[in-house]
Every structure is written in C-alpha cells, then in structure tokens.
Amino acid sequence: MHTLFLMMALAGSHEPLGMPAEEVEKIALSYGTCAGVWDAMSELETARGNPHSAEQFHNVGNGAETTALWLLSVQHNESTTGTKRAMSHYRPLVAPRRESGRTYLLSIVERQDAEALQKEVGYCTELLSFQDETINSIRKQSLEPAESNTQ
C-alpha cells in the first residue's frame, strides 16, 4: 500500500519527491526498519544452514537501507538551495532503525508470534517493488556520463 502511494505521489506533485518532507522521512525510516528485518531473516537463515538464502536476505537489507538513504538525500537536495548532501550523510539516522528492526524481528521469533512475524515481513515485502525501482535507478544514474562543465 505504501509503495503504491509513494509511486503515485512521485508522479505528480510540485513538492520534492511529490509529498511533504515528513511523509518522505516516515517512508524512508520504514525502509531503514525493513533493512533490519531483512538482516534478522539473514541471521535466521544462517542458523538454519542456508548461507545463500542468508546472503540474499542481507543484500535485500542493504537495498532497503540504500533506498532509505536515497529518499532522505533526494528530499533534502531537492528542497534546499544550500549544501547538497550525499546519501551517506543520513546513515546515522537510518542505522538505529536498521538495528531496531533486526532486534524487533528476532524478538518476535523468540516469542514465536507467527502473526506479528507475518505482518512485519509482509509489510517489508510490500516495499520491495519501489526498493527495486530505486536501486535500478541509482545503478542507471551511476552509468550516465557526468555533466560537462565546458561550454
């Protein structure tokens, strides 16, 4: 649901990223939390002896963190005439969310709360579509030649 909202908002608004900064931050921090959810899933797969599945979940977690950082960076850079900030500038904001998402999911598993587990993983799964689009967009941008300053 959030993915659909985000994509629709990005399509046609005069605000940076198509929505108020507060909403962008909320969604970005959700991606930060999901990064931790995927980290927990990676740990669980490692414990089950599934190293390739563990690596895949870890990579999805890195993608979620990258999406969070990208959203925060673009929101700031499009809404300011001041100093532009790199994605890494926002890591101190996202990293605690990643850790809390990891810890929360592991606590759900400890309590054997299948309903809460399904809810958390399901929510993060809903966000994967936009995450994939964001990562692909970042990859494409990295392949584009830098703008020439010579005229």
Results as ranks from 00 to 15, higher is better:
64 A>P: 02
33 T>H: 05
15 E>F: 03
122 G>I: 08
3 T>L: 06
11 A>R: 11
17 L>S: 10
54 A>L: 11
111 R>E: 10
120 E>V: 13
34 C>E: 00
62 N>D: 07
85 R>D: 04
129 S>D: 08
82 G>W: 07
86 A>F: 04
54 A>I: 03
109 V>S: 03
77 N>V: 04
97 R>D: 07
6 L>I: 12
93 L>A: 09
130 F>C: 00
56 Q>D: 07
51 P>M: 09
22 E>P: 00
64 A>W: 00
11 A>L: 13
86 A>G: 04
71 L>D: 02
6 L>R: 02
29 L>M: 14
24 V>N: 06
81 T>Q: 08
31 Y>W: 08
40 A>R: 01
53 S>I: 10
28 A>T: 02
144 E>F: 11
83 T>M: 13
24 V>F: 02
130 F>K: 00
70 W>E: 13
75 Q>C: 04
80 T>Y: 07
119 K>H: 12
110 E>V: 04
111 R>W: 05
132 D>F: 02
59 N>H: 08
126 E>H: 12
111 R>C: 03
44 L>D: 00
4 L>Y: 11
46 T>K: 11
30 S>E: 02
69 L>W: 01
116 A>Q: 04
65 E>F: 10
3 T>F: 06
14 H>S: 09
141 Q>A: 15
126 E>L: 11
144 E>W: 13
77 N>Q: 12
108 I>K: 01
84 K>M: 09
104 Y>I: 06
96 P>Y: 03
146 A>S: 15
25 E>A: 14
144 E>V: 15
91 R>L: 11
92 P>H: 07
138 I>C: 06
124 C>Y: 00
52 H>P: 01
33 T>Y: 01
101 G>F: 00
62 N>G: 15
61 G>S: 07
38 W>K: 09
61 G>Q: 02
81 T>H: 06
31 Y>F: 15
66 T>N: 15
102 R>C: 01
69 L>F: 05
68 A>H: 03
124 C>A: 08
63 G>E: 10
137 S>Q: 15
87 M>I: 00
1 M>A: 14
73 S>W: 05
9 A>V: 02
64 A>L: 12
67 T>E: 11
55 E>C: 09
97 R>M: 05
114 A>N: 11
89 H>I: 05
25 E>R: 12
53 S>N: 12
145 P>T: 14
136 N>M: 10
142 S>Y: 09
50 N>A: 04
87 M>Q: 13
82 G>Y: 09
